[in-house]
Computed example of a mutant assay.
Amino acid sequence: MTSRSTGAALALCTATALTLTAGAPAWAAVQAEEDEATVTVLHAVPGLTVDVFAGDKELLPDFAPGTLTDPLKLKAGSYDIKIFKNGEGPSGTPAVEKTVSVPAGANATLVAHLTADGRPALDAFVNDTSKVPAGKARLTVRHVAAAPAVDVRADGKVLFEGLTNPDEKKGEVAAGSVSADVVLAGTDTVAVGPADLELAEGGNTIVYAWGSAADKNLALKTQTIEGMHSAPSGVPAGETGQAAAHNQNAQIGALSLGALVALAASVALMRRRDDAG
């Protein structure tokens, strides 16, 4: 092989190595995302501004009632969550303290709220981000209020019966606008609402009934998670979990195969040039 051919081969090998390693950062990013969880925090304790800590690290200062944070990315694992009255942490006595497990890849909401009998509590809910049938929306209702069991209605029709604190109920409904209210279980006595809800196709609309019935400050808070559409033909649109990992492997495999094909073609070309010389 001539020195020119040798130089070309070395240059090609270098280019091939760079091509193969170019996929590594993307793969590492996918791995990092799989080790994280998406967490949203809702303050549903009326009349109490708080500071939220994870261990001794302050996460949310001056957290006001009725506030829902934007989604946060957290490493998967267990967190010692402490909620203090504003300005009393981290050395004081927390109003609520609980160890919360955040699984990798999960979409979760942490809710500081009142129990049915009015005591402060902290609960973690895993949000359902599975595919939603075409033309449908997912509606999730969570009872986090100091109140008895309730029924949830949409346009006057009962959708969920006998919901108690701190439970949730969910289902797929037709996408579109509805008027929702919350009534005392088995009655027509309205406890909260009505409120107009826009149930987006392929989304999960999560409604929280929070506050205190005794203090007459019951309210609704809405959280929306989008992007769970299903294609009409039955092939899911978008990728999650194993499908995304398979596609990533396929992309890296195609990248490697393309580099090897280019290398083989170049070697064959150099051999023909050497033979011709």
Rank of each mutant, 00 (worst) to 15 (best):
A116W: 08
A104Y: 10
A32T: 02
A28Y: 09
T69C: 11
N86W: 10
R4P: 07
S78V: 06
V50E: 05
A29D: 06
T38I: 13
A24E: 12
L18W: 13
T38M: 10
A104F: 09
T16G: 08
T38C: 06
P65R: 02
G105C: 11
F63E: 01
T67G: 03
L20E: 05
F84N: 02
P46R: 05
L68P: 05
G77S: 03
G7Y: 12
A95I: 07
A76M: 11
L42Q: 00
P71W: 09
G87M: 13
R4Q: 08
L74M: 06
K73W: 07
S5F: 10
K57V: 15
T49G: 08
A112F: 15
K57I: 15
A95L: 15
A15C: 12
L59I: 14
N86T: 03
V45E: 08
N107W: 15
I81N: 00
D80A: 13
T16C: 15
L59G: 00
D117A: 12
G23V: 09
A108K: 03
E34R: 06
A76N: 01
V100N: 03
K73I: 05
I81D: 04
T6V: 12
A17L: 14
A95G: 13
Q31Y: 07
V41Y: 12
G23Q: 04
G66E: 09
F84G: 02
